[in-house]
Write a protein that binds this DNA or RNA. Structure first.
Lengths: 179, 179, 179, 179
DNA sequence: TATGAATGAGCTTTCATTCAT
DNA sequence: TATGAATGAAAGCTCATTCAT
């Protein structure tokens, strides 16, 4: 993750990764089928963890808007706590489609489903407007979160408080810009 | 653009691009210094065009919320009219930072500035809430737009109407989910 | 000659030569069959001129040792007056055998013949020792001259007087080091 | 060495060298940084060996003229025993300056210093004339040796005895042509 | 299990040469 | 005659992957 984060998938040599891990190049291939597989395994593992943490963050909360705020905060906390992972997921996730034709990224689909589900709940609770389809809203929200994560990850980290950003996004998505 | 869009920067061979363009490999190098330069030139050229169209789309409109809606619609129209360009910009833009360390991407910065400026206007007009900093809101909005563009570009195009999506994002960002 | 001298045969691009000559690349090919041919023509032309000047320098002189001294001086004068030509001939001449398999360099053979002839005369005049075969002595003398030409051409030109060097070589070859 | 000798630096493809060595192309790059580095390493290695052998050949001999004769014989013996090396050093050494701007060739400088030192000794012993500067005489002698080595290496080897040539050069340089 | 030297396919880039204008 | 844009073969180098130890 450290190596992919700092050099990107194509820039990262298998030998760089082996060096960073303190093993020989060949050893990598005892645990992963290929460099592609290495990145995919990373995705899977991280997304699994992320999905779990995000789901847990909303446990025991009933109101959809509270859930959404908690989700957003938890997501941003994850980003700030796992800089490298965030960078890899944020950036390489996109490119992956291009060079790993066959990989469907099921965990990311899970992620989006969770988010859409919360919004759907809100709509059923009568709290959220129903004219925007939940999957679209979920995707838009993810885009916003992802972009700000990228901004945080590539920018000077000390420039702004990621907790505040989380709340701003919560306000934006729940109440909108118009006051 | 067609080739980068379908294979990604690293997957696209210079000879693929030359083939697609109907010229010899060497001819590429009469017009571009390197493969990197080719992608960068593409960015610059497209972003310049995009920025121009987006600015023009809001001309003669006073209210910031109207401006924002027009901006969003124009952006989505551009995406649907320039599938390949959208794909390249959406995806390669992110990766670019990793493999083109020195490239600052000034046109994208312009893009964000335009968007932030509209939001700032809305705040000064008293229409938009002032607790969310304009650059953050702009970035979040771009993330949402970009993500939906990606969804449209990589998904089955006929699945939903991009115009409707534009309006949904407008509603979401201006009024929020909570009704 | 200027371009070959400063960059070497392989380092010199045809377009560099065209630029230096103030013509288009294609124009070169109206006058020379190929880049190889260009260098060969240069050799031929220069060596012809050199051979002529050297032969003339010894005209009307009878004693072989006087002839040899005059030859040496004339050679070194040529080198100092035609820096670029000297550089090309001195350096590229050697490499030529490697990459221009078929080129026999007849003018250089003429050059060596002239020199060997003078030594042969000296031997017949009873002035020069006969135990050293004239062609070997000629070749050795050329080697010495060539090396000093190279030294002069690649070194700081102002460091020593090429006329003096010529006389030193004359003394060395005629009288030897032992006093 | 074999490949550089038969095709020259530019004519020799890295894959030719790998083939000749019985390894894969990539293997070359585990041991040498680049094709340039390969040639430079060859120079260094050979010249080191040559300098050592030449120095040793004169050990225990006091008179400078004896030393010089031994040096010349040893040099020619080396040439005849290491045909390919001689060819590479003789020819590529010259061209090297043109395409390897930064390479200073320190071992060749050592070689010349050794030779000049012997001549200087002869002058101090009162055996050699002092009007010819030792470095100039050394360079001239090297030129003669180098040229004859080239002649031997590129010509039909059986045409003359390299030992005899060595002695002729010894006579020429020590006693001169004039009898 | 772990190693790391060896592999060799594959890619970007260069540049001598051509030829339509 | 002159041009110079276009060509495309060719070559140096990289690096994911293998496999004997």
């Amino acid at each position: 993750m450290r190596v992919f984060a700092s050099k990107g998938f194509f820039g990262a040599k298998v030998s760089d990764i082996a060096d960073d891990a303190g093993v020989a190049d060949g050893t990598i291939y005892l645990y992963f089928k290929s460099k592609d597989d290495l990145l995919i395994s990373l995705f899977e593992q991280q997304m699994l963890k992320i999905n779990e943490i995000l789901s847990r963050s909303m446990e025991g909360v009933a109101a959809a808007d509270d859930k959404l705020r908690l989700f957003i905060r938890a997501y941003m906390d994850l980003v700030s706590a796992n800089r490298h992972a965030a960078e890899v997921i944020t950036i390489e996730l996109r490119t992956s489609a291009k060079f790993m034709k066959e990989y469907k990224n099921p965990r990311f689909a899970d992620f989006l489903k969770t988010l859409a589900h919360v919004i759907d709940e809100g709509q059923k609770q009568g709290r959220f407007r129903e004219d925007i389809p939940a999957p679209i809203a979920a995707r838009a929200l993810f885009g916003a979160l992802d972009e700000l994560a990228l901004m945080w990850v590539t920018g000077r980290t000390d420039r702004f408080d990621i907790r505040k950003v989380a709340d701003w996004i919560g306000d934006l998505v729940l109440q909108g810009l118009v006051q």
